[in-house]
Computed example of a mutant assay.
Amino acid sequence: MHNTPPDPGSALAMRAHFRQSQSRTARLRLLVDTGQELAQLPPQAMRERVLARACAFLAMDHGLLQEWDAEGCASVTARHGSPAHIARLATLADRDLRTPHWHEPPHSVLQVPLRGSDGQAFGVLVLGNSVSLRAPEHEDSESLQLLATLLAAHLQNQRLLTTLKARDRTLSDLVNRLLRAQEDERKRVAYDLHDGLAQTLAGLHQRLQGFAGRCPTLPDALAADLQAILSLAQHSVGEGRQLIAGLRPTVLDDFGLFKALDKEADRLRDAGIQVLWRSHCAARLPSSVEIAVFRIGQEAINNVLKHAQASQVALTLELRDETAILQVDDNGKGFAHDPHRDGADHVGLATMQERASLLGGRFSCVSVVGGGTQVQASVPALVNGAAQ
């Protein structure tokens, strides 16, 4: 029995097919492995990893990544290989590049653009070798373009995230300034009312009382009118004091947060709602902390009076691990969180959240329909490293 001699053509075809399979596997591994890595890396490490992998994929011994900022200024953001060779590559970087471009020998350089979502290039990968190489296959260039697009997407996401964070910081700073200006204006108006209109109303009430005491006996109709005027004057004095207390409670400045919140809780008691202090802290806190926590408590009490239909409210004010914690629990009707209504109907909750977050604190509101509402705010109680 004779063995059939091997077919040289068939062997060459199998070898070519095997090499093609190897190339496709290498391209796929380049994209998959690098894509998984980029999600775990910071921006600078992303640049360096992509550049190193691109050089290794094409057997290039040096390369760089050059990027342009919004003003068009170019900067090399990643380097690989000899500084002398890298300097030469920098002179070849082309910002107007749309597709991968191969420089024929003696350069043996491949440029791959990084394009943003608008299609405009904001960077370019420039890969070179110290000895002449043949041009890479079209599939290899396409793979590197996909790799560059992947890097561009991650870098743009990082840029957008950085911009968003900067805008968020700016917005928080503006809100902080607005709240401070609001408190300053409330304080000024409260003191102006106290020293002006409130004193005038109090003087008017006293003069009317003195006049009524010296007045001879009046007919019943006139006596009733005089008593009505006295009652109106007394009511005006009380309203003036409540207005001043709402703008800037003097008890907050004079006696601290606990006394101010307990004074605010008198509004609940006047409405027939039982108030229970589970625990309280009478220590003085930094002014910014006392104001923020007081305003949060004041808004929570407002919500109980307006919406809760509660019969009991439990208050907690603690200083724990250098953190001021305020909690307001009511046994009212509760409410369901509706994302379509929160912006319009729950501005107070958003304001409480903002006041806490501006001081690096946390705010939560948990409510169950028919099961009451719990509001909690925790705010760092230190300013410049020390409590007052």
Rank of each mutant, 00 (worst) to 15 (best):
C55P: 07
R214S: 11
A52K: 06
L268E: 00
M46W: 05
P286Q: 08
A152V: 03
L51D: 02
D118S: 14
V275R: 00
Q388V: 13
R24F: 06
H346T: 01
P249C: 07
R186V: 06
A223C: 04
P6V: 11
T170A: 05
R177M: 11
Q20K: 11
D330Y: 06
R214E: 12
E264W: 06
G240D: 08
P380I: 09
R214K: 10
R186S: 10
R177C: 02
T250K: 07
N303P: 09
G256W: 01
G9E: 10
T200N: 02
R24Q: 09
L232S: 01
A223E: 13
L41G: 14
G72A: 04
A228F: 07
R284M: 08
A324Q: 14
L208F: 00
V289E: 05
S141A: 09
D69S: 08
S108W: 10
T323S: 14
F57M: 05
L193D: 11
E37Y: 04
Q234R: 08
V251H: 02
L133F: 00
Q22N: 08
A202N: 06
L252M: 06
L359S: 12
L268Y: 07
V313W: 03
L179R: 11
L161G: 05
V304G: 02
N129R: 08
V275N: 07
G119Q: 03
N176Y: 12
R284T: 10
D254E: 11
L127F: 08
Q353Y: 13
E104H: 08
A74H: 07
T162L: 03
A190W: 11
A190K: 12
T250D: 07
A212S: 14
E137C: 07
R15C: 01
S287P: 12
A245F: 14
A386M: 14
K263I: 02
P42A: 06
S367T: 10
S130H: 15
Q120W: 15
E139R: 11
L382D: 02
L58K: 03
S82M: 15
A121D: 00
E142T: 15
S367A: 13
Q376N: 15
R269V: 14
L58V: 03
A356R: 03
L144E: 00
A87M: 03
E104I: 01
V131N: 09
R241F: 08
A233L: 09
L226Y: 12
V289G: 01
R278E: 09
V383C: 14
R355L: 15
E142M: 06
V289R: 07
H346W: 04
H17N: 15
I86P: 00
M14L: 15
L41C: 12
I273T: 15
V32S: 06
G213T: 00
L133H: 01
L232I: 05
L64Y: 01
P6R: 04
R320N: 05
